[in-house]
Amino acid sequence: MNKQLRREIILDNYQHPFHKDKEVDDSYIKVNTNNESCIDNLDIYFKVENGVILDVSFKGEACAISTSCSSILLRYLVGKNLNEVKVILDEYNKMINEEEYDQDILKDLIVYSDIYLQPNRKNCALLPVKAVLRLLDNLGEKNGN
């Protein structure tokens, strides 16, 4: 993906983030995610039924990278079952940590493949991932796993 396209995707998701501030009801699970080292702070809401993420929403203040990343990742996770979610997160973590990863699984998320060039922004690109991992933990605990 060329730099220009990459930038356009990130900027579009920053300026028009997917389901940001979408109203949610009590059936959504809320997970907070923040970076100690910076000032990003988001509440992410998931509607999960029968092991499938049916809908998402997020609220809060974060930088261009965190916000756009939340938008792209959350949009992608809608309709995925929890096993698929785990695979996506694993591949994404590999990419951020400069390991071999599967581009086909990550789709638009590959816009962050160069983020290692700005080490101080890596945490920004991992902000929503931390929330999804916590969601998986919470659901795992609930199911007694």
């Binding site: 910076c38 930088c63 922004r121």
Partner: peptide, 21 residues
Amino acid sequence: VFAQDTATFLDYYNICVRSGN
């Protein structure tokens, strides 16, 4: 513009400012 993005932008010019609360 989110304060952290401004600080990152200024860092590009080697200008150090703090963002946050």
